[in-house]
Write a protein that binds this DNA or RNA. Structure first.
Length: 805
RNA sequence: GCUGGCGUGGCGGAAUUGGCAGACGCGCGGGACUCAAAAUCCCGUGAUGGCGACAUCGUGUGGGUUCGACCCCCACCGCCAGCACCA
């Protein structure tokens, strides 16, 4: 027998697949389509990581199996290539990011190719390609046109050392990831996308798709819809109001003071009436010095701080009581209205604050067995209202209803829905991203670059270093910045910020449908045929960013008629991380990184694919084991040696038939439900049976190769050819099983006495209850004779249980 | 703190969703082949007791439901992930 040399076999078949264009797909509308998608990688300088092949192999198995089942399968790959690491590397090494990207992409591509994936490389996309980002810019302009892109002053992370704004990911433990200087919050004018306008649609859409539950929950929590009421408190001696959002308007009679965020505009507005303005400004400045990290870090059980606003009091609209107003950083400007009504009796934060500042605490929901002055009573979803005037005696729900009625009648409040979701900060003061196609004109304001001028090319610059002021490197390029206003023809200045990395990845799945189209992001015909994506797998870390952003863009494109379905992904799953052999996350500093190239070289791509699918449940983290890899290679060696015991035969031998049908069923089911580990285990078991038997016929081996092919495509093609079969495994039809043949004629059932196993007997599969029990009684006579029978239980195919006294 | 998930041999993990716990793989022990080793093949492998057939115990802890519980219910402990002063 020929020796199994994985390097030769794998190279041979990869070349053949290339030559045959084996996995290039055409828009053949006569066949049912299947769109399998994996998240495209960021082509980093480090190359492929052993974490990448886990989802890629999983979806490659799905794609290969669906092809064998007669589907026209789109399984594409591309590059999410804009981004910071490339830019930083370019700065350090003085190489243009475009060149860095090209090198990285070609390295990645080689590595993916060596793993034998069935990607359709004719549809490769690259987000940094102008013919691609032309359409990213087009979508931005559409958003702008529909009022969903706007400029706003927002707080950003500012590195005091590099004098540059940082993405959240670049802030580590409150300091700059690169230079270690403290990071503070700073206000800057940024492009924003109004994802909040789509909050409800994004929430509702979740009910129509098949995502694993944990993803749905996380998205729902992130969107954070809560229903409550807006309540307007008067400000004594003025016409102004202080508006708050509350989910508990029933507790309004218990509101004994108010708190506003340090940045609340009301403070500056009444600066001349406020007695202690200096103190308040000092407090605000202190709060602003804190980075997000510090604010969050200290949040949990931090002592409450705050300052009373002297000279301003609020009027409670239900009883016209005047109550004090405080500033405190526990109230966030970014949620609700930036102001709250404090009900210390029933909110732990308000209670802590009230205790510290000696404010009154009034119980308004009964039910606590303690005095609310001694202990806060926050759990008040049930309970009866007390000390609450016209809603006394009502339960919480009724009280809320009546209160909203009252507020609406008085014009002092209304029902209101609030979201945690914030608008999407869309500007980056960076070079390596899509230029934002907007011109600022003194006369006309922000003006869109005309569609026929897209793509707005990213110009060549001399240096990618950010400027001292934190502006994008593009701002130093006068020839780029200065232009004519597209509207009035007067002097204009181009936007110099670029888009975040999330932009290009928010629609790439659409481009795969029609990647070379120059007139549209994809033709309607192609979109109609291919979309939505049938199965999308990706990392859990993208659930609230990429996954939500792309759903938002897609829904918007649907609303303007650019795409044909409202939700982009029918099904979403997530893979678990691959940890180092020490159970820790793989990283250079921990020294536990495994390079996939080494595994491919030493054991072969098929081994790596098999191992990563066998390592454990797909959605759970799994730690790397070199011994486990060897075990998988050993299995492939044993598969190869099946040639030694090969005999003639063009149908399954009788003694193996049941096992074979069981295995087809098991593998088919497991490959469709991400249970690759047990599917592979079933194949290992079947192999063990053939080895034990000492022979396998050609029909049986051929079947085995077809079942194993999606996981280990190279070795199976080679063996298929060696045993003299025609054609290719990847073009075979996926086998079906006969349900009748998956069950044995006789079954072993256990016989229990009082629930305890005593004997095992062999009976006909379709034995009736009485005969089964009779046979059972006979087998366990020594335990039941002489006892009274209480109950007899028969579970077909499983057991007989005789309960005696 | 909130949300979601998990807890099973020496290890990675199975268990048709209430029906023989530990499939499959790793590791380990023994044997065959070999001058020897590697590779390969065969046998064994939850714990305790027994030469043995076998018996008892055993799925984080404590209780419960049931003829029967890794699975369902109640309480608790521990770990992982995400969010976190969200009004």
């Amino acid at each position: 027998m020929k020796e199994y040399v994985h390097s030769e076999v794998e190279k041979k078949w990869q070349d053949i697949w290339d030559r045959e264009e084996a996995f290039c797909v055409s828009d053949d509308h006569s066949k049912p389509k299947y769109y399998a998608l994996v998240e495209f990688p960021y082509p980093s300088g480090q190359g492929l990581h052993v974490g990448h092949p886990r989802p890629y192999t999983a979806m490659d198995i799905v794609a290969r199996k669906r092809r064998m089942q007669g589907y026209n399968v789109l399984f594409p790959m591309g590059w999410d290539a804009f981004g910071l690491p490339t830019e930083n590397y370019a700065i350090k090494e003085h190489i243009h990011p475009k060149i860095v990207t090209e090198n990285n992409v070609s390295h990645f591509k080689e590595q993916l190719h060596a793993l034998g994936y069935s990607f359709d490389w004719n549809r490769e996309v690259n987000t940094t390609d102008p013919s691609y980002y032309k359409w990213t810019q087009w979508i931005f302009l559409k958003l702008f046109e529909h009022g969903l892109a706007y400029k706003a002053e927002v707080p950003i992370n500012w590195c005091t050392g590099c004098k540059v704004s940082l993405a959240n990911e670049e802030v580590v433990d409150g300091v700059c990831e690169r230079c270690g200087s403290p990071v503070v919050r700073r206000v800057k004018s940024q492009w924003m996308l109004k994802i909040t306008e789509y909050a409800d649609k994004l929430l509702e859409g979740l009910d129509t798709v098949d995502y694993i539950e944990k993803i749905k929950t996380q998205q729902r929590n992130w969107i954070g819809r809560s229903t409550g009421a807006e309540v307007d408190f008067g400000i004594a001696g003025t016409e102004d109001i202080l508006r708050v959002f509350t989910t508990r308007c029933d507790t309004l009679f218990g509101a004994t003071y108010m708190v506003v965020a340090p940045e609340h505009p009301l403070i500056e507005k009444y600066a001349d009436r406020i007695g202690n303005m200096d103190e308040i400004r000092a407090y605000r400045d202190e709060a602003n010095k804190k980075s997000d990290f510090e604010r969050a870090e200290l949040s949990a059980d931090k002592e409450k701080t705050g300052v009373r606003i002297e000279g301003l009091t609020a009027v409670n609209p239900v009883n016209n009581t005047e109550i004090p107003i405080y500033v405190s950083d526990y109230v966030l400007m970014s949620y609700g209205t930036g102001a709250i009504m404090a009900v210390p009796a029933h909110d732990t934060r308000d209670w802590a604050f009230a205790k510290k500042f000696g404010l009154p605490i009034i119980e308004v929901v009964s039910g606590s067995d303690k005095d609310v002055n001694e202990e806060c009573y926050p759990d008040v979803s049930e309970g009866i209202m007390v000390n609450s005037g016209f809603i006394d005696g009502l339960n919480v729900k009724e009280a809320q209803k009546k209160m909203i009625g009252f507020l609406e009648k008085e014009g002092k409040g209304r029902e209101k829905v609030n979201f945690k979701l914030r608008d999407w900060i869309f500007s980056r003061q960076r070079y390596w991203g899509e230029p934002i196609p907007i011109v600022h004109c003194e006369k006309c304001g922000y003006v869109a670059v005309p569609y026929d001028e897209l793509p707005l090319m990213l110009p060549e610059v001399e240096s990618y270093e950010p400027t001292d002021t934190g502006e994008s490197p593009l701002s130093k390029m006068e020839s780029f910045v200065n232009c004519k206003c597209p509207k009035c023809g007067g002097p204009g200045k181009r936007e110099t910020d670029t888009m975040p990395q999330w932009a290009g990845s928010s629609w790439y799945f659409l481009r795969y449908c029609d990647p070379h189209n120059d007139d549209a992001l994809a033709s309607e015909e192609a979109l109609k045929y291919w979309m939505p994506v049938d199965w999308y797998n990706g990392g859990m870390e993208h659930t609230t960013l990429h996954l939500l952003y792309s759903r938002f863009w897609h829904r918007f494109l649907y609303d303007i008629g650019a795409v044909t379905c409202p939700e982009p992904y029918l099904k979403r799953t997530s893979h678990g991380l691959i940890l180092g052999s020490n159970n820790e996350k793989m990283s250079k500093s921990r020294g536990n990184v495994v390079n996939p190239d080494d595994i491919v070289r030493d054991y072969g791509a098929d081994t790596l694919r098999l191992y990563e699918m066998f390592i454990g449940a797909f959605d759970m983290a799994a730690s790397w084991s070199d011994e486990g890899v060897k075990g998988c290679r050993r299995f492939l060696d044993r598969v190869w040696r099946l040639q030694d015991i090969l005999v003639d035969g063009d149908s399954y031998s009788q003694d193996m038939e049941t096992r074979i049908h069981q295995t087809i069923k098991k593998v088919s089911g497991d490959f469709d439900t991400l249970k690759y580990n047990t599917g592979i285990a079933a194949l290992m078991s079947l192999l063990n049976d053939f080895t034990k038997k000492g022979s396998i016929n050609k029909a049986e081996l051929s079947l085995f190769l077809v079942l194993l092919n999606p996981v280990a495509p190279h070795i199976t093609e080679e063996m298929w050819e060696l045993i003299g079969n025609e054609g290719r495994v990847y073009r075979q039809t996926w086998p079906s099983w006969d349900e009748e043949k998956t069950v044995e004629d006789t079954v072993e059932i256990m016989v229990q006495v009082n629930g305890k196993n005593r004997k095992t007997i062999s009976v006909a599969r379709d034995i009736d209850k009485d005969s089964a029990i009779a046979a059972g009684r006979e087998a366990v006579a020594e335990w039941v004779d002489g006892h009274d029978t209480v109950k007899e239980i028969f579970v077909p195919g499983r057991l007989v249980n005789i309960v005696v006294k």
